[in-house]
Computed example of a mutant assay.
Amino acid sequence: FAADIGFEKFWNVKCRLSGLKPHVSVLTTTIRALKMHGGGPRVVAGIPLPEEYNKEDLALLEKGLSNMVHHINVIRTSGINPVVCINAFHTDTKDEIAMVRKAAEEAGARCAVSTHWANGGDGALELADTVMEACETDSEFNFLYPLEMKIRERVEKIAKVVYGADGVSWNPDAEEKAKTLEKDAKYDDYATMMVKTHLSLTHDPATKGVPKGWNLPIRDVLIYSGAKFLCPCAGTISLMPGTSSDPAFRKVDVDTKTGKVMGLF
């Protein structure tokens, strides 16, 4: 989920509520993903990968490096030491790996190649050593915004600094709801949990790379009082249904004598 979704929530919500101050954040990337952000063809599940992803293409890879650098910069904004993990495939070439490593290091990150998929734990030793080294380096952890900041200002800050947007475009109903929430002290300590696709820095999953000249559209603000979350929704995205008060998994069990699973149907 990269630095725009998972990391941003961990940084500004999880760490704030837990008191954690991480020393290092590992940004995992693949040569294939960077080629896609460089303008590579669309990948469709169940269909063989286009040839561009299975052969050396330094030009395509170079175009996609800006996306990785953007995520590195977001991590550095938090004061946490970034480590780029190149999750290597057998189709990656030495020149491609060298290009990614050079870009990561020039952006201020440590970098390690990991072949754990092929070599198990031994293939991740370089990554482990690099993470340990980063952990031993001082960090200057800081939040993106103070709790006193109102929700519309928070969304603006996240959109500009984390996503790279020029600003935020509010649906009239969503903005009216946000204004109402800002006036009620009950919501002052609610966490801001952005709802956005993880497939792009923008709200549009088809937009790759690091786009410029765009605004983040907010269509609604969802309220989850139990968790104390305010969730601004960007663009069109399906929401995961919540678990009911009596979820079906409670009825599932295994008969230890027969090994038969019960309660599935």
Rank of each mutant, 00 (worst) to 15 (best):
C231D: 05
A178S: 09
D220S: 02
M240G: 03
P217C: 00
L222S: 09
L230V: 04
W214K: 04
S200W: 07
N215Q: 13
P217M: 03
M194T: 06
S200Q: 07
L199I: 06
G213D: 04
T202D: 07
G242T: 12
Y224P: 02
W214C: 00
D220K: 07
K208I: 06
A234G: 05
P211G: 05
P241W: 14
T197G: 06
A191Y: 05
K212I: 05
L239V: 12
V195G: 08
K177M: 10
H203V: 04
D220P: 02
A234N: 03
D220N: 08
L239P: 08
D184K: 11
K196T: 02
I218S: 05
T202H: 04
L181I: 15
K212N: 03
A185N: 15
M194A: 06
Y187G: 13
R219M: 02
K183P: 11
P217E: 04
L201D: 02
K228A: 08
S200R: 06
I223H: 08
P205G: 02
K196Y: 01
M194H: 03
K186R: 14
L201M: 07
L199E: 07
Y187F: 15
T197M: 04
G209Q: 03
D189T: 15
I218Y: 02
V210W: 01
E182Y: 11
F229K: 00
L216Y: 07
K177Y: 08
E176F: 06
Y187I: 14
L199S: 04
K179G: 09
L216N: 06
E182K: 13
S238T: 13
R219W: 05
E175L: 14
F229G: 02
I218Q: 07
N171H: 15
G235C: 08
G226V: 08
C233W: 03
G213E: 07
L181Q: 10
A191L: 12
T192A: 06
D204H: 09
K179T: 12
D173G: 01
D188P: 12
Y190T: 01
K196N: 01
K186E: 14
R219Y: 09
M193L: 04
T207V: 15
N171S: 15
P172W: 11
K228E: 09
G209R: 05
T202F: 02
H203A: 05
A234H: 01
T207G: 04
K179C: 12
K186I: 09
N215S: 12
T180I: 14
I218W: 01
T192F: 05
D184Y: 11
A178H: 04
S225Y: 00
D189E: 15
T207P: 01
A206S: 12
D220V: 03
N171M: 14
A174S: 14
A178R: 03
P211D: 09
Y187Q: 13
A185V: 15
L199F: 00
L181E: 11
S200H: 09
Y187E: 13
K196Q: 05
